Simulated scan of single mutants.
Amino acid sequence: MAAEILLPPLIYDMCLVSKMVFTPNPTTNDFLAAVICDINGFARVTAGAKRWAILDPIRLNDGDQITDLLYHRNGMVYCLTRFRDVHVLHLPQHRCRNLSSSRATH
C-alpha cells in the first residue's frame, strides 16, 4: 500500500538534488530521507521534522562528485562517486513521530 510522505522544502544555496533515498518501508510517521545536494553535499530529514538537516560536505578529489546513494541499515548510507570511491555516512536512526506528545493539552 502506497503512502504519501510530505517533506518540508529543501532550502540550500541553489541546491541541485540529484538523488534521494528513504529508509526501507517508509510511512508517513516513520521515515528518514537523505538527498545529494550539488556535488558533495547532503541533507536529511526525519518524520516530524520541520526542516532538513544540512550535513557537512564530503571531501572529494578534484573533479569528483557523488553520483549515487544506497541506504543500508542502522542509519548507514553508502555514497558512490564518479571516480568509484565509496563513502559511508552514519545517520541517526529514523524515529517514529510520537503524535500524542506533539498535541497540545488544555
Rank of each mutant, 00 (worst) to 15 (best):
Q65I: 06
F22P: 00
D68Y: 10
L70T: 12
I58N: 05
Q93M: 12
P9C: 07
D38V: 05
H87T: 05
D62N: 13
C15D: 10
S102F: 04
L32N: 06
F42N: 05
T67K: 12
I39Q: 15
F42S: 06
F42H: 11
V77Q: 03
V21N: 03
P9D: 14
I36C: 06
D85R: 15
C37L: 12
P26W: 01
I11Q: 14
D13P: 11
I39N: 15
V35H: 08
P26F: 00
A47V: 04
V88G: 08
P92A: 11
D30I: 00
P24W: 04
R73W: 07
R97V: 13
I36N: 11
D13Q: 15
I36Y: 07
F83T: 10
V77D: 01
R82C: 12
V17D: 05
Y12P: 02
P8Y: 02
Y12V: 12
D68S: 14
M20D: 03
P8M: 03
R51D: 15
V21I: 13
Q65S: 15
R44P: 00
G75K: 04
D85P: 00
R95N: 10
S102V: 13
L60D: 06
A53M: 10
F42Y: 12
L7T: 02
L32C: 12
V21P: 01
A47G: 07
V45M: 09
I11F: 14
F31H: 05
G75I: 01
N98P: 03
P57M: 01
L99Q: 07
E4N: 03
F42Q: 02
L91R: 05
H72V: 15
I54R: 08
F31L: 05
L55W: 02
I39G: 09
L69M: 08
A3K: 11
D38E: 13
F22K: 00
A49F: 06
I39M: 14
M76R: 14
H90D: 12
L89K: 07
M1T: 11
G63Q: 04
T81L: 06
N40D: 15
R73C: 11
A33V: 00
I58R: 02
M1L: 10
N98L: 09
P57Q: 05
Q93T: 08
F83E: 14
L80W: 03
D30C: 09
D56N: 13
